[in-house]
Design a protein around this nucleic acid. Structure first.
Lengths: 332, 332
DNA sequence: TTGTATGCGTTATCAG
DNA sequence: CTGATAACGCATACAA
């Protein structure tokens, strides 16, 4: 059996309520007694029983993260960072990889203080979700796609920034390389935004400027870019949907003997530091990772304190211009 | 506040102890009463409070999984499967992505029934781990590298099988493609076994037959294979350390215009179904995924029932010969 | 400054 | 079959 405050009390020759106070660092306990109790607790390897504690205090100091698509790499960095951030505020995070409804159920049973849901597929059965949960639930995804408050990094706006940037430089033949096959809301959102933005700039939308690929791995980007570059009317600029794709694209461009940005410009989604360290520092659009984690943590804490939060929180993406984008040849 | 059995009792006009029994499907409650109570519970959206339950019954029906290296893709499928398997036995699994010692601490506070630790780095501070835990801990890794009982899929043996298979076919120039840069125990173990096995077969160990690569992505395998194939004394067989690497290797071989298995044989680690669906069905070594998940679950359940388990459980890898391996040309 | 008593939601034991 | 009641480990209002 685990060691309890009663065991400590016995050893210290005090009542167990004094132990409880001492361990919670209450000012109502003499320093000497406190020290003694704490040292005994450490000696015995005491771990407070969450069950008992949260039963009485109705707080578990735990945030549940719902992450049914573990296989996807993208959110893992994000989750790691959010975990670190929450730790600073004394919260522990626990992850469930079950499907969304059972995961939420589990976290209810565990009485976590808040739930963060990651989900990017379009196959959620909204009906099956608890319509009013007594535990606050925050969604990370696309505003409006779920009944919960949602943090949206505004992929729509990000792609728009990319298109506008290239268009302002004078590009007319802009291609988009991103996954179309997956039933992935984030990818769908980005392609949609590409089409809209192109038309808003008064550029004719050519279907062959949208790559047909089936994955988000580096190699998928490579293949897509290669076939793009072989076209008779080759694009003068490429927009990539992710870091991994960009790496592949860079390889294809290199193999084709083209110069970036002289022969072709590249703008990539994903605002992460690694983008600077590629063969050519790449122009990027997106919300900075630390901005996301900070915001997510902030909102979660607000929800826990039962403050009102808006139903949609948009994070503003930025455009960071680097060496990979420049005016096209004919404009120079 | 959440709804409790007392709320249900009030609505049903019975005592809350009757409700408790009814919900646990006790035979001591009349069917009618039971039905009524259950329907009220559903109506109210009742969720049993794990805190209270595990406080009295000393069982949380939960297994904690320690997985500090979320960014690594490899274990994710495994964890998903283990989760499914445990579900069949009424257990919930919760994942912690914290570092190993704090994760174990957390799970202690949550009083989970067992802890499964995934860790493949060599930088664990064994001293910092609880030396005797009242909660059973199972390690997934390399036997002997931790103080806990360990499930070991015997990578050593697997690579040996690969080497022997190729050697028996008549190959002498066998190269190994796997990551050497990472401080990853699994990779280290495999390279080590390659060297030993080669020598055991009386083949001279050439250092240039071990690829120097820095990652486990498909593209890393591609690059490594390409440079291998350009050597003056080209290997007649390649052993790959993982599925992803193999995909890259296949591409490189194809580009070089070589035929598998006529010009070169391929044997890959990772016993997963996808291996059959590559351009050439690939000969593989390793323990089948389902064998691993079944075994892990079995051992976990045994530990929970406080049965003794051996300190090292080796899972026997198998060799599945497919189209990608054949005798070298000179032997034909 | 310390100790006593109560209750959190549930299960389990015992009496009705 | 059903209903009191004790106990699980802890925090806290209150008493000493």
């Amino acid at each position: 059996m685990g060691v309890t405050i009663k065991d400590i009390a016995k050893r210290a020759g005090v009542s167990y309520s004094t132990v409880s106070k001492a361990l919670r660092n209450s000012p109502l306990v003499k320093e000497d007694t406190k020290k003694k109790i704490i040292s005994i607790a450490n000696e015995l390897g005491y771990q407070p029983n969450v069950a008992a504690r949260s039963l009485v205090s109705k707080k578990s100091w735990t945030v549940g993260v719902v992450w049914p698509t573990v296989e996807r790499v993208a959110p893992s960095t994000l989750i790691t960072k959010i975990n670190e951030e929450l730790e600073k505020h004394a919260y522990t995070t626990l992850v469930s990889i079950n499907k969304i409804d059972t995961a939420i159920e589990t976290f209810h049973r565990f009485q976590v203080d808040a739930i963060l849901v990651f989900y990017d597929r379009d196959d959620i059965d909204i009906e099956s979700l608890p319509q009013h949960s007594n535990i606050p639930i925050l969604y990370y995804g696309i505003a409006g796609s779920s009944p919960f408050p949602t943090i949206d990094v505004n992929r729509k706006k990000a792609i728009q920034l990319a298109v506008n940037h290239l268009s302002e430089l004078g590009h007319k033949d802009i291609a988009y390389i991103g996954d179309l096959a997956e039933r992935d809301l984030f990818q769908i959102e980005k392609v949609k935004s590409f089409k809209e933005s192109i038309q808003q700039r008064g550029i004719e939308l050519r279907q062959d400027m949208i790559a047909q690929i089936n994955g988000l791995e580096s190699h998928d980007g490579y293949l897509a870019a290669r076939s793009m570059l072989q076209k008779k009317q080759r694009p003068t600029a490429l927009i990539s949907a992710s870091y991994d794709l960009t790496r592949g694209i860079l390889r294809a461009v290199n193999e084709a003997g083209l110069n970036i940005p002289k022969d072709i410009s590249i703008v990539s989604y994903d605002n992460i530091p690694q983008m600077q360290n590629l063969v050519v520092p790449v122009t990027i659009v997106g919300v900075e990772l630390t901005d996301i984690t900070k915001k997510v943590t902030e909102i979660l804490l607000q929800m826990i304190e039962s403050k009102e939060v808006p139903s949609a929180i948009y994070l503003e993406p930025e455009l960071v211009v680097r060496k990979s984008s420049a005016p096209p040849k004919d404009v120079l």
